[in-house]
Amino acid sequence: MSENILIAAGFGGQGVMLLGQILATAAMYDNKHSTWLPSYGPEMRGGTANCTVVISDELIGSPVTDSPGELIIMNIPSLLKFEPALKEDGLLILNTSVVDRAPQRKDVEVVKIDANKIAEEIGNTKISNMVMLGAYLEKTGAVTVESVEKALRKKLTGKKAALIELNLKAIEAGMKLARK
């Protein structure tokens, strides 16, 4: 049985919620079970916004966790909050454009992505979340890239449809970086 339990966290506005939704929707297109659970309420202002995504071949029990297998971290408060919880041998993907300090854990795999810089090179810093998603896809293979594209096309409609290609480029760049 394969199961991925991810917490994606950052400042409100960095797009971690959308990242999680795209991932959970892609899992559905891959005929897997998935849940997307947002933090909502007081945490959203100033501190960390985060969401938990569970992807599984089996029916999902808990959509909450104390010990995620994977973390996507977009700012320092999120690193401080979630790093201790990460499972041993877990995966920590770090946006080093924002997080200028090293993680403490030695028993996990750390992937450093200069996501804002790369996003800017592609044309828009707002897509740093998709660069991070790309790195996550490369490292975990949790869902197929085809399904991610399908999820993006479903989510970004109307005026936003023009941004699909940009998002896909960002995902590709993230995948490339994580491959190194």
Binding site: W36, L37, P38, Y40
Partner: peptide
């Protein structure tokens, strides 16, 4: 409950 209201699932 709030969790069921806020979460997304297929």
């Amino acid at each position: 409950d709030g969790m069921l209201g806020q979460m997304m699932e297929p």
